[in-house]
Design a protein around this nucleic acid. Structure first.
Lengths: 127, 127
DNA sequence: CCTTGACTTAAAGTGAACTTGAAGATTTAT
DNA sequence: ATAAATCTTCAAGTTCACTTTAAGTCAAGG
């Protein structure tokens, strides 16, 4: 069992954010000790890591919320949860492809700068 | 010369956003007709496309602002502009790498779902 | 005993990037 | 001639994901 401070150290998520996630229903299973303080078990930690991966890939809080609700509803939601993950996988792949396309434009700009600088340094450059 | 409506059709950027970008100093060169209406020339369009690429890769408005200011200051800022683009290129590459890492986690989840579903469909599955 | 530090809640605040609304000017269509 | 479309400015509103603040509880240390 880990205190909220330990979880912040293990995950890099601030205590405020962890409480916020819990309030939003993203971490519904976190238990409390006799004084009402949060105690995160291994499963909670896995959820924090999973939520972090979903957030880092741009999944909105409401959608993670929905996913957690499905999880809590039971095994009969497995196919829907899987469909969500499949769609999200495609979203990420699309996002990566778009980043590559735009990276190409940045690289083109950089190539132009190389030419410009070369021209300013040696007026006799041949291209 | 293109009206704001034509630019929205060509770029997919809304008129409000184009005005907002101009107010923020991202499009300082846009001319007006005799009635004060915006008229975008080819260079403006190129800037809109470039700004779109920078935004799509996560560059904040203030940084694009800075870039445009450097551009306006003249050729002596070329090396600084190039440095900005180089840094941004590295940021994008880092972002792509992180997306791939998190995509791996999603794929792992998906693999688990495949196993789970298989188990539910055929209790005699061998793995 | 009292202070310190780590926690708690609930509500309000923040920052970024737009987006919308109100009020007015001008051009275009009927 | 009147109505609709398109533009203008400027200010206010929205959304998302936190973050901060205020006020309070509790256990340990000096």
């Amino acid at each position: 069992m880990n205190s909220i401070k330990e979880v912040t150290q293990m995950t890099g998520i601030t205590a405020s954010t962890l409480r916020y996630y819990e309030n939003e229903g993203l971490l519904p299973h976190v238990k409390r000790d006799e004084n009402g303080k949060r105690q995160y078990d291994e499963e909670d930690l896995e959820w924090v890591h999973f939520i972090t991966a979903l957030r880092a890939t741009g999944m909105p809080i409401v959608q993670i919320q929905r996913y957690v609700q499905l999880y809590q509803a039971g095994d009969f939601t497995i196919s829907e949860r899987k469909a969500m993950m499949l769609q999200h996988k495609r979203d990420i792949e699309h996002k990566i492809a778009e980043l590559y396309r735009n990276l190409d434009k940045i690289n083109y700009k950089l190539a132009l700068y190389d030419v410009l600088e070369a021209q300013r340094n040696h007026a006799d450059i041949k291209i």
